[in-house]
């Protein structure tokens, strides 16, 4: 297990199965920008709830332990 001693300002959501530290108060929109992922090109699921309205991403504040799945379409049959 990785060291979890983050600054008191950080929170640790689980993003696509991996813990990631982001600044406290970060929204999912902030996380996507940090990851250089275009919100328009993906679908986000937050704690098993699909975020249908992408305009909400900038108001959804992340907390430690939150599950975030960021998916898109890949080649398949």
């Amino acid at each position: 297990m990785m060291e979890r001693a983050v600054s008191p300002d950080g929170v640790i959501p689980v993003v696509n199965g991996e813990e990631r530290t982001v600044a406290a108060g970060s929204t999912i929109g902030d996380l996507l920008r940090e990851l250089s992922v275009s919100a328009a090109a993906v679908v986000v699921e937050h704690n098993r709830e699909i975020v249908r309205d992408r305009s909400r991403l900038d108001s959804m504040v992340l907390a430690t332990g939150d599950s975030v799945e960021i998916v898109h379409f890949v080649g398949g049959g």
Binding site: E18, V42, V43, V71, V74, G76, G77
Partner: peptide, 19 residues
């Protein structure tokens, strides 16, 4: 044309998105 839903690979520069 069919496509599959998968996690975006966040640890790689290459984009495997098909769209």
């Amino acid at each position: 044309v069919t496509v599959a839903v998968r996690r975006v690979n966040l640890n790689r520069d290459t984009d495997d998105g098909v769209l």
